[in-house]
Design a protein around this nucleic acid. Structure first.
Lengths: 347, 347
DNA sequence: TCGCACAATGTGTTCGAGCACATTTTTATT
DNA sequence: AATAAAAATGTGCTCGAACACATTGTGCGA
C-alpha cells in the first residue's frame, strides 16, 4: 500500500468517469441506478476517504475567527489564553486562518457589549468568547446568530441553542475535588468556603463549585465539620476576613472558589499562627508563590490556556476539514501541589 | 484580507516569475543578486507562509508508522495506548497515514527482539516504541537506524543519539510529587517505598521515582520519618508484604512506584486495621476501585494514552507538514483523587 | 424514422507549490 | 564581433477533488 486511492482509481475500477464517482460521493444526482450501485459497492469495499489536502486546495479562503475575552491586564487569570491562541496560530496559521483577539473590561458589562458590537462589525466566520455576563451574553449571541456568525464559548457555560460549542470544566465536580483534597489533609476543625467576589458577577461559577464542595461533605459518614460560607470583597479584604475568622475561630480549612486565593494566603501567613489548610484555584504567579512556601496546599488548575486552544482548534478544524464541533468539551480538572507547578510542565 | 498570498502574487510584486520566487524560497541558487534582494524584501514584508495544503498535494505517499508496545492483555496499563493510536488515525488518517500496532510480551526480551525484527522487515517510515528492555532496545534501535527507519520512544527513556524523540514524564519529579502528597496527608509515622517488580526489569523507572521521593523528604526541615524500601514480587505477594509490615510496625504511609498498587491496597483493606496513607500510580480499574473506596488516597497518572497520541502525532506531522519533532516531550504529571477519576474526563 | 428533450456520463479547468525543462540573458574566449 | 558556455529566468505540467461545461445516450411523440 504505497499510494492512496483516488477518485480516478475508483472511476477506473467501476468503469465510469471520475465525474460519476464525484456525483455518487456527493449525492448530486444525475446518476443511473446501475452506475450508482457499481460505484457505491467499490466505495464501501475500500473504505474510501477523499484526500483532505486536495479537498481544501481549491478553497483558498482565509477563515476569520475572533476571540473575545477579559483583559489579561486586569485579571492575570486570562494571561495563558494568549499563549493558547498563539499556539493555534503557529500550528494552523499556514492553512489560512486569521485570528483577531479582543479584550473587554471584566468589570464592565458595557465594555463587553461594545467589544461584541465591534466584532460583529468585522463579521468574522466565527467568534470564540467568554460569556462572563449572562444577560448581556445572550443578547450578543443573538446578534451573532442573526449575522450568521458561528459562536463558541469557553470558561463560562451559558445555556443557548445557538452556541455551537462550549469548552470548560465541570465546576460541580471541581468543588467535590476541592472538598476531597481539603478533607484528606485536615485534622478536624471547621471549614470555610470563601468567594472572593470581583465587581463582576460570576456568581454561577462560584455557586456550582460551592454546591459540589458541600455535596462531598454531605455524603461523608462521620460529618463532624461545620461549613461557613463567606462572600468577601477585594476592597478592605484584610478587615473582612479578620472579622470572619474571628467569628469562626475553629476554622481549620479554607476553600477559595476563585483565583484570588493568594489574598487569603497572604492574610493567613501574616496574621495566623495555627495551621490552616488552603485549597484555591488557578496557577497565578501569586498563588504559586504561596503554594511553594506551603501556605496554599493545593491549587485546582482550570487550564484557561487549554480551553482557549481547544476552542479555537475545534473551530479551525471545522472550517478547514469539516470536522464536527463537539457541543461540549469538559477538560480534566488538574490538581496541583508544590511539586507539580513547574512552569515547563504547566502553562 | 480575503485571500492568501501565493507564490504567484509575490512573483508579480517583485516583477519576476514564480520560478525565481521558488528558487529564493528554497535557496536553490541560480538567482541574481538583484532578483534575490527584490524577492527577499517582499517575503520579509508580508511574512509569507507557503500554503501547506498545496505543498503536500503532490506528495501522495502513504506514510507508514509502526507502534510497538507491551501487550495490553498482559498488563492493562497499556490499554489506553490503543485509544491514543485510534485517535490519531481518526484525526489524521485521511491525510494518508498507515499505522500498524505490534505487541510484545513484557516479560520476555526475546519477544521484544522478535517483534522488532518483524517491524524491521516491514520497513515502515518510522517506529514508535516502548524501550522496555534497555540492552535489547539499544540493539533494536541500531537496527532501525541502519535501515533508515526513524525511531521515537515513549514511556521509558533511553539514552541514544539515534532516537529522534522521547515522550514521557519526569520520573524524579513524579517521585517528589508523590512524597509531597504523602506528606500532606500523613499524621506522622514511618514511610515505605514499595517496588512491585514484574518479571521484566524496569528498574531505572522505579529508581528515579525513589530518588525523587527521597529528595523531597531530605529537604524537609523537621525530618521525623524513617523511609523503608522494599522490593516485592507479584508471586507470594501477601506473604512478603505481611513480613515487611511486621518488621516495620510504625509504617503509616506507602508509596508504590508501579501500577500494581492495588495489590497493596487489597492487603491493607483485608488485613490492617489502622489507617495507612497510600499513593500509587496509574488509572487501572483495580486502582480506581481502591481509590473510590478510600484505601488508595492518590494516584499519579502517567497518561499512557496521551504519550502514545503525542508520540504518533509528532511523527505524522513531521512527515506531512515538515513540523520539527521535539527531542523530548515531558507531559504534566496528573494527580488523581477519588473525585477526579471519572472516566469521561480521563482516559 | 426523425427530432427533441432530458437524463446520464465524460472532459477539462481550477486551486498553490514544486520541480523539470525550455528559453533568454550574460559572460568568457577566440 | 562571433560563438560557445554558463548563468539567470520563465514556462508548463503534476498532485486530487470539485465543479462547470461538453458530449453522449435514451425515450418518446409526431
Amino acid at each position: 500500500m504505497l499510494k492512496k486511492y483516488t477518485i480516478r482509481d475508483i472511476a477506473e475500477m467501476a468503469g465510469v468517469s471520475k465525474g460519476t464517482v464525484d456525483r455518487v460521493l456527493h449525492n448530486r444526482g444525475k446518476v443511473s441506478e446501475i452506475a450508482f450501485k457499481k460505484v457505491s459497492k467499490i466505495l464501501d469495499e475500500i473504505d474510501f476517504k477523499p484526500n483532505l489536502i486536495a479537498k481544501n486546495l481549491k478553497n483558498n479562503k482565509i477563515y476569520h475567527i475572533c476571540v473575545l475575552l477579559p483583559d489579561p491586564k486586569m485579571d492575570s487569570y486570562w494571561d495563558p489564553c494568549l499563549k493558547g491562541i498563539d499556539d493555534v496560530i503557529k500550528e494552523l496559521g499556514a492553512f489560512g486562518i486569521n485570528i483577531d483577539t479582543f479584550f473587554f473590561d471584566p468589570t464592565s458589562t458595557k465594555s463587553f457589549l461594545n467589544k461584541n458590537l465591534m466584532v460583529q462589525k468585522i463579521k468574522p466566520d466565527a467568534v470564540l468568547l467568554v460569556p462572563l455576563f449572562f444577560k448581556e451574553a445572550i443578547v450578543a449571541i443573538e446578534g451573532y446568530n442573526e449575522l450568521g456568525i458561528m459562536v463558541s464559548t469557553f470558561n463560562n457555560h451559558i445555556e443557548s441553542a445557538v452556541v455551537k460549542s462550549f469548552i470548560g470544566q465541570n465546576l460541580f465536580q471541581s468543588g467535590r475535588i476541592a472538598a476531597k483534597l481539603l478533607h484528606s489533609i485536615m485534622k478536624g476543625g471547621d471549614i470555610a468556603i470563601i468567594h472572593i467576589d470581583e465587581k463582576y458577577k460570576n456568581a454561577i461559577h462560584m455557586q456550582e463549585k460551592e454546591q459540589g464542595f458541600k455535596s462531598y461533605y454531605k455524603e461523608l459518614a462521620h460529618f463532624g465539620h461545620e461549613i461557613h460560607v463567606s462572600n468577601l470583597k477585594n476592597t478592605d479584604f484584610n478587615k473582612s476576613i479578620a472579622i470572619f475568622l474571628l467569628k469562626h475561630p475553629n476554622i481549620k480549612g479554607i476553600f477559595v472558589t476563585t483565583s484570588k486565593g493568594f489574598h487569603v494566603a497572604d492574610y493567613i501567613q501574616n496574621n495566623i499562627n495555627k495551621n490552616i489548610a488552603l485549597v484555591c484555584y488557578d496557577l497565578l504567579v501569586e498563588n504559586i508563590t504561596y503554594l511553594k512556601n506551603g501556605t496554599i496546599d493545593f491549587l485546582i488548575h482550570q487550564n484557561p490556556k487549554q480551553q482557549t486552544y481547544l476552542g479555537l482548534k475545534c473551530l479551525v478544524e471545522y472550517f478547514l476539514f469539516d470536522k464536527e464541533v463537539p457541543s461540549q468539551l469538559l477538560l480534566p480538572i488538574d490538581i496541583i501541589n508544590s511539586e507539580n507547578a513547574t512552569p515547563f510542565m504547566r502553562d
